[in-house]
């Protein structure tokens, strides 16, 4: 199991004993409403999904731990090692941590892993056009809307490694001071 620990958070690779908790989180309307797939996820679907993401090295899902609590899920999935890209995602389930800096701490931890250890050059995100908070979050990191995506409902944004490292230093200093 991969464990990433930095910036005051711990990311623990998802294990089978946690998938029911994640299924419950994912089926909660407060999370479901921001997902492209909004049907109820059954235990069987969850088992099949976990088998799929555990079978290779193209998907990494982590439980986010902060202050001793399991607060959400963060991932890099569908990694294409030839193109050196993958698709990240995050949700914070615990309302106490929802509008906090922990989404940034977790993202730093994941993106260091993605660009440093996995050696990817860019990450690609899809965000619903009306999800302003997620768009603002991604623009903060340096994501750029892909050409021709202006009128698409589920818009594609790309973050290049160089853009990430420009943003990383200042944020990293702030969070390192806080630990």
């Amino acid at each position: 199991m991969i464990v990433l620990q930095d910036y005051g958070v711990t990311l623990k690779q998802l294990t089978h004993d946690k998938i029911e908790m994640v299924r419950r989180w994912r089926n909660d309307p407060k999370i479901q409403k921001y997902m492209e797939f909004r049907d109820e996820i059954t235990p069987e679907m969850q088992e099949n999904w976990f088998r799929k993401i555990s079978s290779g090295n193209t998907d990494y899902y982590f439980i986010i731990e902060a202050e001793g609590r399991e607060i959400g899920l963060i991932n890099i999935r569908s990694i294409d090692y030839d193109k050196k890209e993958g698709e990240p995602g995050i949700f914070i389930y615990d309302d106490d941590f929802l509008n906090s800096d922990y989404s940034f701490r977790s993202s730093l931890c994941l993106l260091d892993f993605v660009f440093g250890e996995l050696g990817l050059d860019r990450v690609v995100s899809h965000i619903m056009r009306d999800n302003k908070r997620a768009i603002d979050f991604n623009l903060f990191w340096g994501y750029v809307l892909s050409p021709g995506q202006e009128d698409v409902f589920n818009q594609e944004y790309v973050l290049q490694k160089e853009a990430y490292y420009k943003k990383r230093d200042k944020l990293s200093r702030l969070f390192k001071k806080k630990q």
Binding site: I92, L98, N99, S100, D101, Y102, S103, F104, R133, D136, F137, F140, L174, K177, K178
Partner: peptide, 19 residues
């Protein structure tokens, strides 16, 4: 926390401002 615009990005901005 109840302000409509309040978000993780605003929280981060406030933390950075205070620093």
């Amino acid at each position: 926390h109840d302000l409509e615009e309040y978000s993780s990005l605003i929280a981060l901005s406030i933390i950075a401002m205070i620093d």
